[in-house]
């Protein structure tokens, strides 16, 4: 009994000395972050089209798309993001990068929001805003279509095609 009382702490001390110090120095030292760690995402406004594909796949709806009159806003709410990286996989323009940022603590919910504001192009015929300007710009780069064709909204384009068909078959529109 007496021996045990002395031996038990001694055993503990030997284990403690053998293990050494394990405590991470964080926040005074580097955090324990590995290659595979995923943190908050970052949207590159120079590449983003405002297409909304990321909004559709985001499981917790951390990304949201808001249609205003002449603006389309992609809203990213870091607070709800689960850092899955599905948006980065989906983005057709490769605009999303997954960063290693995790020091996101905030005392205000607004501080956790990130907006990407897009200008919406207006239809050359009816003047109705219909698609983000950045999307049209990149579609024109990728496909052999002219600005004249791309700058018309789907409704007007449909009407124009119908009229062209009609004229071919002799209708008077």
């Amino acid at each position: 009994m007496q021996v045990n009382r002395i031996a038990a702490p001694l055993k503990l001390l030997t284990i403690a000395f053998k293990t050494g110090r394990v405590t991470k120095k964080y926040p005074f030292g580097p955090p324990l972050i590995t290659e595979a760690f995923r943190g908050a995402i970052s949207i590159d406004p120079a590449k983003c089209w405002g297409c909304g594909a990321c909004v559709l796949v985001c499981p917790p709806n951390a990304l949201d798309i808001i249609f205003e009159k002449e603006k389309i806003v992609i809203e990213y709410f870091k607070g709800r993001c689960i850092f899955c990286g599905m948006c980065a996989d989906t983005c057709p323009a490769n605009a999303i990068t997954v960063t290693k940022e995790f020091e996101l603590a905030a005392t205000n919910l607004e501080d956790l929001k990130e907006d990407v504001v897009h200008r919406v192009s207006k239809c050359a015929v009816c003047g109705k805003p219909f698609a983000p300007a950045a999307e049209l710009r990149d579609v024109m780069k990728m496909h052999p279509i002219t600005e004249e064709y791309a700058n018309i909204c789907p409704d007007c384009r449909r009407k124009r095609t119908a009229r062209a068909f009609g004229m071919r078959f002799g209708a008077s529109i």
Partner: peptide
């Protein structure tokens, strides 16, 4: 705190 509201305009 490090983060703050970001608004990026395209």
């Amino acid at each position: 705190q490090k983060v703050s509201k970001v608004v990026k305009t395209v």
